[in-house]
Amino acid sequence: MRADARKNRDHLLAVAGSAITEQGVEVSLRDIARRADVGLATLLRHFPTREALLDALLRTSFEELTAKAGGLETSSSPEDALVSWLHDCVAWTTEYRGVTELMAAAIDDPESALHAACVTLRAAGARLLTRAQAAGKARDDIDGADLFALVAALAWLGDQPSLAPRADHLFDVVAGAILTTGS
Rank of each mutant, 00 (worst) to 15 (best):
E101F: 00
W92F: 14
T120A: 11
T100A: 09
A104L: 11
R97T: 04
A123N: 15
A105V: 08
A124N: 11
I107E: 06
A105Y: 04
W92L: 09
V119T: 09
A124Q: 10
A123S: 05
T93P: 01
W92K: 04
A106C: 06
E95H: 14
A116Q: 10
R97V: 05
A124Y: 15
A124I: 04
E111V: 07
A117K: 04
T93I: 03
S112R: 03
A105T: 05
W92Q: 13
H115L: 06
P110C: 00
A106H: 09
E101L: 00
D108E: 07
A117T: 02
L114P: 07
T94R: 15
V119I: 15
C118F: 00
A116W: 01
M103R: 13
R122P: 03
H115K: 03
T93L: 04
I107T: 11
A116R: 15
S112I: 04
L121C: 08
L121N: 07
T93W: 03
W92P: 00
V99P: 00
D109N: 13
A123R: 14
G98F: 00
D108F: 03
L102Y: 06
R122F: 07
T94I: 07
E95C: 04
P110G: 10
A105D: 06
R122H: 08
E111H: 05
A106K: 15
E111I: 10
G98S: 02
C118T: 05
D109A: 12
Y96W: 14
A123K: 10
A104W: 05
L102E: 10
T100I: 11
R97G: 05
I107P: 00
A104G: 12
L114Q: 02
D108M: 05
M103Y: 09
L102R: 12
L121Y: 01
I107V: 12
A123T: 09
M103G: 04
A124T: 08
M103L: 08
C118W: 00
D109T: 07
T100K: 11
V119D: 06
E101M: 00
V99I: 09
T93K: 10
C118D: 01
A124W: 13
T94Q: 11
R97F: 09
A106M: 08
D109H: 04
D108Q: 09
V99C: 15
E95F: 13
S112Q: 06
A113R: 14
A105Q: 12
T94K: 14
M103E: 15
T93V: 02
S112K: 06
P110F: 00
G98E: 02
E95Q: 12
I107W: 06
A124E: 03
T93H: 05
A106Q: 07
L121F: 15
E95T: 11
A116H: 12
A104D: 10
A116L: 08
Y96I: 04
E111L: 07
A113L: 11
A105E: 09
P110K: 03
E111N: 09
V99F: 01
D109I: 01
D108S: 04
A117N: 07
